[in-house]
Design a protein around this nucleic acid. Sequence first.
RNA 1: CGGUGGGUAGCUCAGUGGGUAAGAGCGCCGUAUUACAGGUACGGAGGACAGGGGUUCGAGCCCUCUCCCACCGACCA
Length: 524
Amino acid sequence: MTTSTLPPNAVRVYNTLSKQKEPFEPLTPGKVGIYLCGPTVYKEAHIGHMVGPVIFDAIKRYLVYCGYDVTWVVNITDVDDKLIDEARKRQLTMQQIAEENIADYVGNLQALGVDQIDVMPKATEHIGDIIDFISNLIEKGFAYDADGDVFFDVMRDPDYGKLSNRSADDQQGEGGGAAAKKRSPSDFALWKSAKPNEPSWDSPWGQGRPGWHIECSAMSHKILGETFDIHGGGLDLVFPHHENEVAQSECCHGKPMVKYWMHNGLMRAAAAGKVGGRTEREAQADDADTPAATKETKISRSKGAGGLAELIKRHGGERIRFFLLRTHYRSTIVFNDEGIEEAGTGLETFHRFFERYARVTGQDYYSLPANGRRSDGEFDPQSDALLGKVHAHRESFLAKMDDDFNTGAAVSELFELVRLLNRFMDRQKLEAAEYQDPHAMASLQRGVQTLRELSSILGLFQQAPDKPGGGDALTGKLMELMIALRAEARANKDYATSDRIRDGLRELGITIEDRKDGTGWRLE
RNA sequence: CGGUGGGUAGCUCAGUGGGUAAGAGCGCCGUAUUACAGGUACGGAGGACAGGGGUUCGAGCCCUCUCCCACCGACCA
């Protein structure tokens, strides 16, 4: 067995800062720190909020798989104008609003299989760190206190604009309001003085609360250090949020804040009915009140998007995760209900395969070991025809992941792998016990192990999907009886009766499948 | 207007430091397995890669111009 060491620079990532793909080399060999901008928890999450968490969950899994020790941080903004407004509107405290929506957010993450986050710091738990950070900036002359408000002095930072490729000079802010206190219109708030009845904290500049950007600088510094490897977020955060973060952190520490900036594409809502081939389903659309957008628009809470929890309830988290992973993280994802539905159809191919595999080998796919390392998964296909192809798909899958985490392309390798394995079972007639060749069975199992390995990198098929009831013993007995009755009818060529049984069961959501080795059934 | 990301099969998306035959999923048609259906496999229809120009022996991939779409444009925009 060869334990080949993987090339150290196999992974390449697209860096927003340089606008090109760069070889991935962590600052500290073997260790990776990732900071992802999380939600402002003033309302329930929508599907757009899951793009970053899902892709970074896969990224972390992949980096761990490649042997890195990864720390992944996702922050929670729990103090902000919007939270204050919401609290006022609903006659609750800001903290109550935050707690409610954090619960929603965490529940959504869990449903989508996002379980790789190491730390979820809240802004309100780091007020001290934030104040220290601001004090430091003032001491160094990069920020100034203006009557209880503290602003960052953009003109003192010659690098300002390097991430979003804008110069402060180009950007003329509007006059009036708080702008009157600013030295330059492009200065932004680090600390906001408290207005009456607002949540506030003591500070050297009086009662107040942190500005929008400073928490990320302070918390990433506290948890990951002055310079860390990867900072992620949505494309819409490049400016001003991340631009301001870099300015704050780099002026404060005098060194680069982040080595690789990674930004995921945004999601758009699309008109319903554009996804192909739904003529059948359209006719019998059961829960037909899909919101009919007429054109594509950005999904945002300000436009009323929400209801992710409801979407998850309707489709299940795995579908949504798969839907998100099917595209490249940097491209725009067009979202509609049919798209999720279609992703689910693709997913069923895998689920059926796992059932078939269990029938043939008696092994439960979901029990196969899944938390391997890249080097563990290496194998020598020798002269085994099947394993030679499996090996090639594995190489291809990994090459695609190495190339800026191209999960969409990697998914197509998964499909090809399944087809390969299905074909093998067909040709080797593995379904019929009397033909089962031990060598072929061993090859199949080795091939499926690789499928398990690769799909786990994407966090797919971690657990058996929830079947809507029906797993109980009584149902099993009843089905045995129905199938026996139907078999009798078929033997007598009484197809009217056998079809009546099959059609009747279908209406109950049970699909009958006649196979060589007997009749099986499955709940849809 | 400035910045950013896009425009590839009916639909949703891939396309690896440019190279003989353009890929996946879904949808559609057919064949095999066969009463039929479902499943699986195989095969097929369907793309001159937004448009023009350029570099190159050779470009979907590089350069340039144009058109179209989306997002961001400093936080009482």
